[in-house]
Nucleic acid binder design. Structure first.
Lengths: 230, 230
DNA sequence: GAATTGACTCGTACAATGTACGATTGGATG
DNA sequence: CATCCAATCGTACATTGTACGAGTCAATTC
């Protein structure tokens, strides 16, 4: 209960990305902007991982002082929120939803997952209350597809959450179990351990199988089977 | 690349929880132990949230110096890992797997989720490579139930991952969208926003519905429908 | 009994972090 | 010219994880 509740400062550019008025143009100093900050944050996260993002390092990359960031951004948390949503970018391809609904869903969710896996740090950011515009756009889309497919009104929300849960879970899991860069030795040792305590698990080689993409697709198919309107 | 790669220290008690030899018994100083550390960490996380856990505060609660913790625990990350697995405690009720397999799965996954929601911080710890004994026990159990139910060998791992994904995703989501303690005003404003940009979403009231338990159960049923052996 | 060992504890110190605060800048507007 | 204000940034501070090494006892060895 100590260092909280500061907020309510005073001025901030908030939302209105109208005319940045091109301050500081004499030489060619690039000047900060929310877009540049977020883009650079993503770069830095890609390069250094989630602990590599500090306000000072981010400012360095931007050629500015650390405190300058705070004009554009409330705090570090906000940078994370924005970076996450930025990675989930979604432009509707918009064939309205006529074709096969399963294909559309699969495509959108695979794209969702692929986007996140391209930036593995994004998975560790999921556990935060971030409903950026891109996530919302994807939910909106899901809604349209499913209701267009004839899913009962009463089941609609449940169906959407189920798909959401599945994608989130699969991505979080996958991003953390990427063994290939892990010591193979550790995996082997773990398996030996498993043999004693968890025989079925060891036999199934669940933890060594690495066709994540295939598994994602197959599992999604199972879920869609269950979701399909009767 | 500055403060890393220290490790390889020297001695640590590692695993052997054999005889603590009752050091420091003259007065009645309780002395540290891994169990006490983890239990207290969970208490502290429950009380103060994920940012409330610092090595110093944890040590305070234990009545010890901060650095004493490092004899029992490699670093703070390890404390998180242990706290997470501790929350997922799983004792097999062990009716071997004769009854209806769906009921068994539903019960186990609802228990899994309930345990985590009782300690909301645990959701934000999921994105880490933590396969503690309790998680493994649950996976082992899932394997047994599903293969006992007649799920094809080739589908087994996919089925397990699907269920895993679903639980993880649902828990992460739920732990972060608990609006009731959130400003209701913000939710309303958000909904108004949605009306313009995301009409279907706004109409569905997806984000205001709060029967999370029911939705979890229904979605799980859908998934199990899809998973059921043909 | 004295000396040694080794399991465990902890005080001090340091580098790194997020960010509060206030000063500064320079273009736009009067 | 003076005024203003969006934007930048240096300094400072409290807080963090943890390296390092010194301290403390019980058990063990002489």
């Amino acid at each position: 209960m100590a260092g909280k509740r500061s907020g309510a400062q005073s001025r901030r550019p908030r939302g209105k990305a109208a005319s940045p008025r091109s301050v500081r143009e004499p030489g060619n100093e690039p000047a900060l902007s929310l877009e540049r900050i977020v883009a650079t944050a993503v770069e830095l996260l890609d390069a250094e991982g989630i602990d590599g993002l500090t306000m000072r390092r981010l400012a360095d990359r931007l050629g500015s002082g650390a405190m300058s960031l705070y004009w554009h951004v409330e705090n570090k948390e906000k940078v994370f929120d924005l970076a996450l949503d930025s990675v989930l970018e979604y432009r509707v391809s918009e064939p309205a939803g006529s074709r096969d609904w399963r294909g559309e869903i699969v495509q959108m969710l695979e794209d969702w997952r692929a986007n996140m896996l391209r930036h593995p740090w994004s998975a560790s950011l999921l556990p935060r209350r971030a409903l950026g515009p891109n996530i919302l756009a994807r939910l909106e889309r899901l809604n349209k597809i499913l209701s267009g497919a004839g899913v009962a009104e009463a089941d609609l929300n449940v169906a959407i959450w189920s798909l959401w849960n599945y994608v989130i879970g699969a991505t979080v899991t996958r991003a953390n179990f990427d063994l290939s860069q892990e010591d193979r030795a550790a995996a082997q040792e773990r398996l030996a351990d498993l043999g004693e305590r968890y025989p079925a698990l060891a036999r199934s080689r669940l933890l060594l199988d690495d066709d994540w993409d295939g598994a994602f697709r197959k599992g999604l198919d199972f879920l869609l089977d269950g979701l399909a309107p009767r």
